[in-house]
Each structure stands twice: as C-alpha cells, then as structure tokens.
Amino acid sequence: MRRLVISLVVLLALLVAADFGAAAVFEHEVSQRAKQQFGLADDPSVKVGGFSFLAQVAAGEYDSVTVDAKGVPVQDVLRDVDVHADLRGITAPLSEVVSGSLKQIPVREVEGQVRIKAADVNRALQANQSNSAIASITNLTIEPAAKSLVATAPADGSETDLDSVETADTEGATAGVRLCGTVEIAGQSTELCVFSVISLEQGSIAIDAKRLELRSAAGTTRLPSAIEGVILEVFSRSLPTGELPFDVTPTAVTVQSGVLTVKGKASNVVLGQG
C-alpha cells in the first residue's frame, strides 16, 4: 500500500510538472505572436486560465488566455500605457504546441483594453503649456463621475450634493470623469477639480471639460469666467491611445479610480496573422 501511495504521489507530481511545462511552452508561443502583432519591444505577459492545461491541449481548444503589456509608449505623449487582452476559445493543434512551432492561432473572441494612468494624463496636460498654474499641478487623480454631475454648474460655486459621490456611468461611448490635482494659487495649496465628459475618437480619448471647482482651507472658490475658460480649454484635449490589440474596434470608454480605459471586442481573430 505504501509503495502504491508513493507511486501515485510521484505520478501526480510528474503530471503537475508536465502541465506547468506544457503551459509555459504555449504561453511563450502566444507571447511571441502577441509581441509581433502589438509591435512591442518586450515580451508581453501571458497567462493560461482553466484547471488543467493538458486537458485543454487534448481537446485542442483553450478556454481563456490573458495577455498583458505594461509601460507601452504611445506617440510622444504617453509613456506608461497598459494593454490588456482576454482571449477566449483558442484553437491550437497538440503537435504544434509540443514542438513550439505555432505560427497562427485562431481565437473565437477577443476583448481588448488600453488603460491610461493619471500620471500620463497629467504629463499630457502639462506638455507645451505656458500657464503656470497648470504646469504646477501635482498629485493628479482620476475618479468616475456621473455625466449628470459633470453638467451641474452651481451658481455660487459651492459644492453640489453629488460632488462626494463617485458614480460611474453605464459603459458606452461617453463617460463622466473628475480630474483633481493640487496647485499653488497665491501661495496657498488648492485642490483644482475639473469635471469632464470623455468620448471615443479615432485612436484617442477626447476630454471635454465642462466646469471646475477650487477647494482650499478657506473653502470653495469660484474663479472669474475668463480664467475658468482658459483652464477648461487646457483640460479639453485628446489623448492618443494607440490601437487596441488584434485590430479590436473601440466601442466604449470607462473611468475607474486612477485609470481611463478604452475597450472593444472582436470575433474570429487570428493571432500571428499579417
């Protein structure tokens, strides 16, 4: 009985090792194809989902694979964009997985995302700006805001009832966002919050700044309309996103804490094609 138990344990260990080894080979092959298709300098991270990789190999189809590329530069504006893709229903012959000769990988469905972080948004806003207040913005934050809140402009500049509520809009072609940062005004540290609507454009996210608020120890301040207009114009700009992975067509923009995201889906994609 002891020998049987030991044999079973050894066999199980060998199966686990083989499963991890085969998965590593497959992940490397997918990473190389994704690197080529993304046009990346470094290999993206690839992770195979599912309980047993070898069982998926035997079936010839893989339930879920995620691909992540971090720190991707976009044009000369953004330096730290994250590219993420969820691949579902991947078909790959066993012989090509074992030999490492995968060239083209059919995928039933792809969901791709491009994520822009607050630091890159801040850098883009400050680029080529002569306005000293904008150039001194630090600690920029990104938070979701309902579009109804963005459009609300209190007459006296005071805080609205919804200002403290972070409510993301339903996923779609537009979304509300609150961009806040710290600036020095008249020697006093002041929080500047710009409420905007973001929308999809060809290869970019368009920011349409609607209103702003200044908050300091002295309370909430309303700027003269001329100065407010200048600041809103600075914040109203387009951020290039580059292309979504695997030629996915952008269909939605979303706002999460610290991140602006462009999303899209595609069906019947061939990884490594072209």
Rank of each mutant, 00 (worst) to 15 (best):
residue 217 A to S: 15
residue 260 L to H: 00
residue 170 T to H: 04
residue 249 T to Q: 07
residue 192 L to T: 08
residue 29 E to P: 00
residue 188 Q to N: 11
residue 103 K to L: 13
residue 45 S to G: 13
residue 185 I to M: 07
residue 18 A to D: 07
residue 30 V to E: 01
residue 260 L to F: 02
residue 190 T to G: 01
residue 72 V to E: 06
residue 241 T to G: 03
residue 168 A to I: 01
residue 12 L to A: 15
residue 60 G to M: 08
residue 157 G to V: 10
residue 65 V to K: 01
residue 34 A to I: 10
residue 52 S to Y: 02
residue 135 A to D: 11
residue 116 I to K: 00
residue 236 S to C: 11
residue 224 P to I: 14
residue 82 D to N: 10
residue 196 S to A: 15
residue 96 E to F: 01
residue 187 G to F: 04
residue 86 D to Q: 12
residue 257 S to E: 15
residue 203 G to M: 09
residue 121 V to M: 03
residue 104 Q to Y: 06
residue 51 F to E: 10
residue 91 T to G: 10
residue 58 A to F: 12
residue 177 V to H: 01
residue 134 I to M: 05
residue 17 A to H: 03
residue 89 G to M: 11
residue 248 V to P: 00
residue 198 I to C: 02
residue 111 E to H: 14
residue 242 G to P: 02
residue 108 R to E: 15
residue 120 D to R: 02
residue 120 D to V: 10
residue 53 F to R: 04
residue 203 G to P: 01
residue 63 D to I: 12
residue 140 L to P: 07
residue 146 A to F: 05
residue 169 D to L: 06
residue 90 I to T: 05
residue 185 I to D: 01
residue 234 V to M: 02
residue 26 F to R: 07
residue 250 P to G: 11
residue 107 V to H: 02
residue 237 R to F: 08
residue 224 P to S: 13
residue 133 A to F: 09
residue 64 S to Y: 12
residue 79 R to D: 15
residue 108 R to V: 14
residue 68 D to K: 08
residue 37 Q to V: 11
residue 107 V to M: 06
residue 185 I to K: 04
residue 2 R to C: 08
residue 51 F to I: 14
residue 205 I to E: 03
residue 90 I to S: 07
residue 271 L to Q: 09
residue 154 P to A: 11
residue 48 V to W: 03
residue 119 A to M: 02
residue 127 A to R: 14
residue 133 A to I: 15
residue 264 G to C: 08
residue 170 T to V: 12
residue 60 G to W: 04
residue 263 K to A: 15
residue 132 S to V: 13
residue 203 G to F: 06
residue 149 L to H: 12
residue 21 G to H: 05
residue 261 T to M: 03
residue 38 F to K: 06
residue 202 Q to R: 12
residue 256 Q to F: 01
residue 163 D to N: 12
residue 230 V to T: 13
residue 241 T to E: 01
